[in-house]
Design a protein around this nucleic acid. Structure first.
Lengths: 132, 132
DNA sequence: ATTTATGCAAACTATTTGCATTGCC
DNA sequence: GGCAATGCAAATAGTTTGCATAAAT
């Protein structure tokens, strides 16, 4: 593994957030000013395929990456957009019981109104549609 | 609502599949040969926002649309790619119990090896990584 | 007639890829 | 030296948008 590759991997691993490619690019640039976007993409794709990092899809138009490999899923606040890890105990078993096919993995996104936003406006869930 | 809008909506509503924008475009074209992609997108976005149809994200690089508004989620076979509706009884309650924030809605994708693919190669889950 | 929707093309965002060059064992 | 990784720029895919025209009420 090259020094650049180590740096990309470290950036994702060290962060506790869910990073966009742009954010990773910016962070890696501080050590490797000439790094190219294409290289960032190529390596992130490889790392995700090799299960060194995890790709998180479906949150916005762009994928995010995280270093946390422990099995978990995510919630996103519909009001402020904040993404949070969630651990649902027994989720796979709960679902597997009800499915004929063999479950390999799950991608669960829980759309919430987080407690902060709920405090700011307790009418969130009483308005039109889903409260947006 | 214009005749074109009715046609776009009908195409999605009448189908029992999960349609890509391209597929919807092609179907609408048979009645409105000069329809533009931009118009398809504009209307699908509006219909989804108005909850006349549902947008399904996270399955591939492109969003899909479906007319089925009953609450349900999806599974996708990692081998053949087939997308299937799944209904998990009590899922929202199961998750809500374990989450501090107020759950509004869920997007669940169950990654499976469908029974057809399992029959063709019963070693799917025994190989490297996730059997791909 | 006036408002709203449409077609078209250009713009935009996210991502991938070909290729000449560089860096590493 | 030779193979793999990188930078760069162009290409691709999906989607959005500005604007002049056309359709609907």
């Amino acid at each position: 593994m090259t020094r650049l590759q180590k740096s990309i991997l470290e950036v994702v691993k060290r962060s506790e957030a869910h990073l966009s490619v742009k954010e990773i690019y910016a962070l890696v640039q501080s050590d490797f000013p000439t790094v190219a976007m294409g290289t960032i993409y190529r390596n992130l794709n490889q790392f995700a395929e090799d299960r060194l990092i995890r790709r998180v899809s479906g949150l916005g138009s762009a994928d995010l990456f995280e270093g946390n490999l422990a099995i978990h899923n995510h919630s996103q606040c519909l009001s402020c957009g904040k993404v949070t890890d969630v651990h649902i105990l027994g989720l796979k078993e709960f679902i597997q019981e009800q499915i004929g096919d063999e479950t390999v993995s799950l991608d669960l996104l829980v759309n919430v109104i987080c407690s902060d936003c709920m405090k700011k406006d307790s009418n969130f869930l009483k308005g039109t549609k889903d409260g947006k």
